[in-house]
Design a protein around this nucleic acid. Structure first.
Lengths: 105, 105
DNA sequence: TATATATTTAGCAACTTCGTTAATTGCTTA
DNA sequence: TAAGCAATTAACGAAGTTGCTAAATATATA
């Protein structure tokens, strides 16, 4: 299931930080690695796992591989789960109704 | 950090299912265990981890221990993270603005 | 007290995850 | 082609997670 992969991917602080780094702009694997006190191979594996979960996409650009955030998949998975567990309570109520209405169309 | 504990807790399908079970009503540890093909001790540990993450609360009631979902903590953590990573895009935009306004008050 | 039920803790084996270094692949450029 | 940089894959050990059974702790009741 996609949800399993997403939550597994998010269960790691370095991976969540990678997503945050990608929030503002796309970055190459090397640029991402340079921001962590961790080897490039380790970062590469984190990126691969994030891509497997559908949270980022990659594109080879010459010598480099550029990664970018898949915002929709992240937001939809998180709000989808929150709504499944808390259908009627809390601040998600209005937003969830709006999503449901959009899907029904 | 609380966020680490929450995402670690959510990175397990049985634990997410427990949260879903608790969505509609509070349940005793035994009632929860009876819905899974898993031993009671295993469920007890999952519940303990969920409680450590602040996602559920427990209360001893005589012989039983009753668990209930902490909806606010779940929803706030998930939407908080989604907003941190995707501040301007996607369906969370309006909701996030509302949350920020509430905090500022 | 003695017994039964509910839940948690302890101890254990199987499995997975994480990060490292070394080796490999892909692309660019002299 | 050869050399060099970017990125990934391979192989390894350390550490953590998961679920089990057995034992211990809490509470209720005869």
């Amino acid at each position: 299931m996609a949800v399993d992969l997403v939550f597994e991917a998010l269960a790691s602080r370095p991976r969540r930080e990678i997503l945050a780094y990608l929030s503002a702009q796309e970055l190459t694997a090397g640029e991402i690695a340079s921001r962590f006190a961790m080897s490039a191979p380790a970062i590469s594996r984190h990126l691969s796992l994030l891509e497997g979960a559908g949270l980022v996409s990659s594109e080879r650009r010459g010598q480099y591989v550029v990664y970018r955030l898949n915002k929709d998949n992240l937001v939809n998975t998180l709000t989808g789960f929150a709504f499944e567990v808390c259908p009627k309570a809390g601040p998600l109520k209005r937003e969830s109704r709006r999503l449901a209405a959009r899907k029904a169309t």
